[in-house]
Design a protein around this nucleic acid. Sequence first.
DNA 1: ATATTTAGCTGAACAGTGTTCAGCCATTTA
DNA 2: TAAATGGCTGAACACTGTTCAGCTAAATAT
Lengths: 207, 207
Amino acid sequence: MGIAERKERERREMRNLILETATAMFLEDGFEKTSLRAIAERIQYSPATIYLYFKDKDELFCEIQHRGFALFLEVFKSLANQPKPLERLRALADAYMRFALENPGYYDLMFIMRAPMKAFHNSPDPWNEGKASYEYLKATIQACAEAGYRLRIDLESAALMAWSTCHGVVALRVRDRLKGIPDEDLNYMISRIMDQLAVSLFENALD
Amino acid sequence: MGIAERKERERREMRNLILETATAMFLEDGFEKTSLRAIAERIQYSPATIYLYFKDKDELFCEIQHRGFALFLEVFKSLANQPKPLERLRALADAYMRFALENPGYYDLMFIMRAPMKAFHNSPDPWNEGKASYEYLKATIQACAEAGYRLRIDLESAALMAWSTCHGVVALRVRDRLKGIPDEDLNYMISRIMDQLAVSLFENALD
DNA sequence: ATATTTAGCTGAACAGTGTTCAGCCATTTA
DNA sequence: TAAATGGCTGAACACTGTTCAGCTAAATAT
């Protein structure tokens, strides 16, 4: 009775085919322009078929969001080898902003777009890896504190400030609100901002 | 020959009627749900009529964006009576974030949405008042510097950092990325973050 | 006063979207 | 061999932004 097994597998494969195709198309053309009809055509199925595997477009993109967070967490973890905690924290911030610029589609879906946030009942929670990444950020700040850098504020506020500062500048950038500033100048300013972020978090960041 | 004059006036009135209606509907229901058809129906005209006054939906919302910036600049200017520059700067930051929470529709259009940013050839430039507000922010930071608070970084970087920090936390908030944090806790954390922002900008902020 | 031009407005259509559902057909079960 | 299952689809629904030929009323010219 391996039939049920095979059907289970076929179903997973089909789901994955849709997901892969949707992801590829989304990362190329963005959310609005990636229509279910276009996805269906690419994989040579009827648009209605997609609805047999995903409740609606939001759920589909919720899963893509999940993939984004998984990739993001990997990037964060790849920085763990940096032994000095403050430099690790800086590496985290740089990686965060680089991720946003190199994967604008994912970043949009993860931190800016409203669309896939409604389907929040989903399991597995697409924000799982997102939360893990945030915990990792907090742990790194905590590690700095334990290495002798005295925190000026509580850990929670410090972590939110770090996140907000990075998100702020990068969100303004990917949404073209900083177009007036040449890339070169902007990169310099961001570097300065990150320096001062450390100063604002720790009393003796400059030691 | 007052006919041309009257027609000119009627045209302005019609344009304004569309704009008023669109603004009201947009602030209530958001961009996506405010369809040109619904706007047209509300003012009892054909959808095609709107195209006689606005090139497309983007241009219409570009003007609404302009209104948002105008309102925003007024809020900023209303804070000019605060004599102490550092407290004025803090008031600016608080006002910025309050504006975002009290006018989420406008804030979205002004600082987050991609939609009306394409129609950037428009005159008058909807970002006119936006730029003026930013200049006002810079002037306030400069005033702090001149009042004895020593800037840790150059003025441009400092201004961008202030903007980014405020935008970061508020953008995450209005896009439901901080839903896990109770409002009360979040407000406390934001207050702490603003304290530390001042510390990061000025060597002697705490004096 | 009549004819002609102008200009505002619209109905209908186009091409696209997400979504639903009756029904077909091959595979599986009885 | 007959019945039941279940994957898939064509066609439709209700929307969207946008365009355009053509109507009608007002303004101008004769």
